[in-house]
Design a protein around this nucleic acid. Structure first.
Length: 497
RNA sequence: CGCGGGGUAGAGCAGUGGCAGCUCGUCAGGCUCAUAACCUGAAGGUCGGAGGUUCGAAUCCUCCCCCCGCAACCA
């Protein structure tokens, strides 16, 4: 059995989950379910990134113990996954002991490879912020928050020799040993390698960053985000613990899902670290974009922040899952619009899919059709192949569209064959043939839709009186002769807007 | 001269050399199995602008205009 290890970026628990997290979770879950249908041994990681000066600061501002705040926020991410029907196999938290141990093991490997060195870092440090500021953030040379000129501060910390791996990473991407989807992002990463990846600062003095993973054998230094957070993809498999069996079984990762903002870290730093440590690199990176709301960046001040739970309450979970996978280009930015949502819901879900299920099952019941195990594959030819190609090429939107096109052909087929007319003419044989074909078509389309709208498809399988332990292997057979189907309730009822 | 993405029908998008396409919306017709759903047809575009290469350009080249990201220690 093939294994499939799927990762997504871990969420920074400085705030609450937003639509961007939801987007990634749903994409990941759809891909995860697709591979389950393929019959693979799927392992899906998820979790939270819980260190860093921002979290330290937020906790202090809120007057909370750091661990307390982190626990609280972590729970909101766990809850949102549950709400979304996103099922992960492991939930990694970077503040957990076993993660810290793994991160330290990885650090030691890099050190042993001679890729970690000490150097001084010079920056503009604002005492008020307790952090380094960027030159571009300054207003008249002063910190905009504290209206004070930051001090030029020099500190010793560790660096990672990423520059050493620049060419090697470029070769790996060019040869598709490391695939990057979509192509535009691949080009972007190649261009970065072309310019030359630079060494990265890898630690912070404890006095600057007190909340993090200790650097092995140096009591004064704490790991900066790279080794701490990126290592989660292997520590969640037990890397660095007493039991590395999952690491041996599932690594390397088959697909790592990330947002476009962190491409350079995953395509550059992370790969460099793995090369240095002598660990295999991921096979592919899938890069998605951002989601806007009504054409604008979601922000509290604009008041256009979309709360996923409200949408779910109004339209149902699968409608949200469907909207995000069908409407947002998988590798690009997309928009969340209430108007579009209503259109997609009624046109694709209610009218196309939902109504098709209703009319087919209604006729089968009404005309008391004795279903025949035969399927006219014409119309279905090539659909599954294209659908698969799209999912594997990290284009969920096109995959869904492929199924929608197939649903169209089924609706058209009904018009062309007019089963109700056939029954009136007493042509039971032909009507049976057509309706058996339609039931089988609905079954096949539903299988392909399961990764996207699992709850709905399971309902349809219930109406069809079929077991809901679905797999793509079921596409190779047809429904049994004489199979009895049940009746259907509307899958996507009209929603008053 | 920083890097990149984009400008195609009312809206949203596909389309990298060969009669300009899809979805939604609009209009007209058909059907009655179905969630007033479904099917067919029509209207609607000088493919951001200018120039060039070519028998032929949305697609290749040059220049210009407009929008949006990124510019590495915030993740």
């Amino acid at each position: 059995m093939n294994k499939f290890y799927l990762c997504n970026a871990i969420a920074y628990v400085n705030g609450k989950p937003h639509m961007g997290h939801v987007l990634e979770y749903i994409f990941a879950d759809a891909i995860r379910r697709y591979h389950i249908l393929k019959g693979e041994d799927v392992f899906y990681q998820n979790g939270t990134d819980e260190h860093g000066s921002k979290i330290y600061k937020t906790a202090k501002d809120q007057g909370l113990e750091i661990q307390e705040m982190v626990d609280k926020n972590n729970q909101t991410f766990v809850n949102v996954c549950k709400l979304l029907n996103v099922e992960y196999d492991v939930w990694i938290r970077t503040s957990s002991d076993h993660h810290k141990k793994g991160a330290q093991k990885l650090w030691s490997k890099l050190d042993e490879a001679g890729d970690i060195y000490k150097d001084s870092y010079e920056g503009l440090y604002c005492v008020g912020c307790e952090a380094y500021l960027n030159e571009k953030d300054l207003v008249d040379g002063k910190c905009p928050n504290h209206l004070k000129e930051p001090e030029k501060l020099k500190e010793e910390n560790y660096f990672f020799k990423l520059s050493k791996y620049s060419d090697q990473i470029k070769d790996l991407i060019e040869s598709d040993t490391l695939k990057i989807y979509p192509e535009g992002r691949r080009n972007e990463m190649l261009a970065l390698c072309e310019e030359g990846l630079k060494d990265v600062s890898f630690s912070r003095p404890k006095k600057v960053l007190p909340w993090g993973v200790n650097v092995p054998d140096d009591d004064d230094q704490v790991m900066y985000v790279w080794c701490d957070a990126l290592s989660n993809y292997i520590t969640c498999l037990g890397y660095g613990s007493d039991d590395e069996s999952n690491f041996e079984k599932y690594w390397p990762c088959d697909l790592q899902m990330i947002g476009k903002d962190i491409l350079r870290f995953h395509g550059g730093i992370w790969i460099g670290m793995l090369l240095s440590a002598g660990i295999e690199i991921p096979k592919a990176l899938g890069v998605h974009g951002f989601i806007t709301s009504e054409g604008q960046k979601m922000s509290k001040s604009l008041g256009n922040v979309v709360d996923p739970s409200e949408i779910i309450e109004q339209y149902g979970l699968d409608a949200l899952r469907f909207y995000l996978t069908r409407e947002v280009p998988t590798g690009d930015d997309g928009d969340f619009s209430k108007e579009r949502f209503a259109i997609v819901y009624s046109s694709d879900l209610a009218n196309n899919y939902g109504n098709l299920v209703s009319r087919v099952l209604a006729m089968v019941n009404k005309y008391d059709v004795n279903i025949k195990s035969e399927f006219d594959v014409e119309g279905f030819n090539g659909v599954f192949e294209k659908y698969s190609e799209y999912v594997e090429g990290f284009d969920l939107k096109k995959a869904v569209e492929e199924v929608l096109r197939y649903l169209d052909t089924l609706n058209t087929l009904i018009e062309e064959t007019k089963p109700w007319a056939l029954m009136k003419e007493g042509n039971v044989e032909e009507a049976t043939k057509v309706l058996s074909n339609l039931v089988e078509g609905v079954r096949r389309a539903s299988i392909m839709l399961w990764p996207f709208i699992p709850g709905t498809v399971e309902k349809v399988f219930g109406y069809l009186n079929l077991e809901s332990n679905i797999s793509f292997a079921d596409l190779e057979s047809t429904i049994d002769d004489g199979h009895q189907v049940g009746t259907a309730e509307p899958l996507f009822p009209r929603v008053e807007v």
